[in-house]
């Protein structure tokens, strides 16, 4: 049996240690927000955080998450309110069919947390591992800029 922290809760898993993290999240913990699009680390729909860093959960045996912090899309919003990045995607049209969205939002959220650049080219670069077939990315880039802009405004507001 291994222990891990998922979305702030202590969890234990006693199945096969080589089970993929995505399957453990979806099947054992019923966190189905994390999606599988390709099973080879190409599409990024399965992106979650492992100790705060974005990773492809379809390429990780659950054993590698032992004793570590896993965060999924379900951690970004509470029952009443979407997170800053999710709200920005809603406003700017960053989600269409929604299947790449959880992974896309996670990578974007990582960029927000590390204080990433709001330049479109930098945003496109960090999102390059998350394939989207609906949006043509433009509204996704707009969404991320929107979310980063809010952070900036907030920071400025606090200073004043």
């Amino acid at each position: 049996m291994i222990k891990l922290n998922v979305n702030g809760k202590r969890r234990s898993f006693s199945g096969p240690l080589f089970k993929r993290l995505i399957d453990v999240l979806r099947e054992d913990f019923r966190l189905t927000g994390t999606k599988e699009g390709c099973g080879e680390g190409e599409c990024g729909a399965c992106t979650v955080f492992l100790d705060g860093e974005p990773v492809n959960s379809c390429l990780i045996p659950v054993a590698h998450a032992e004793g570590r912090k896993v965060e999924t899309i379900e951690s970004l919003a509470n029952a009443k309110k979407l997170g800053v990045m999710q709200e920005a995607f809603l406003k700017r049209g960053g989600a269409q069919c929604g299947i790449c969205t959880p992974g896309m939002v996670m990578t974007a959220e990582y960029w927000r947390r590390v204080g990433g650049s709001p330049e479109p080219e930098a945003i496109r670069n960090v999102l390059a591992g998350n394939l989207c077939r609906c949006t043509g990315y433009q509204h996704i880039v707009d969404s991320v800029i929107e979310a980063l802009g809010r952070r900036r405004k907030k920071a400025r507001g606090q200073k004043a």
């Binding site: 966190l31 189905t32 927000g33 994390t34 999924t72 899309i73 379900e74 970004l76 919003a77 979407l82 999710q86 995607f89 809603l90 989600a95 069919c97 929604g98 969205t101 959880p102 939002v105």
Partner: peptide, 9 residues
Amino acid sequence: EGPEKLSGR
């Protein structure tokens, strides 16, 4: 249906 999609629900 944006909130459902964005929250993973």
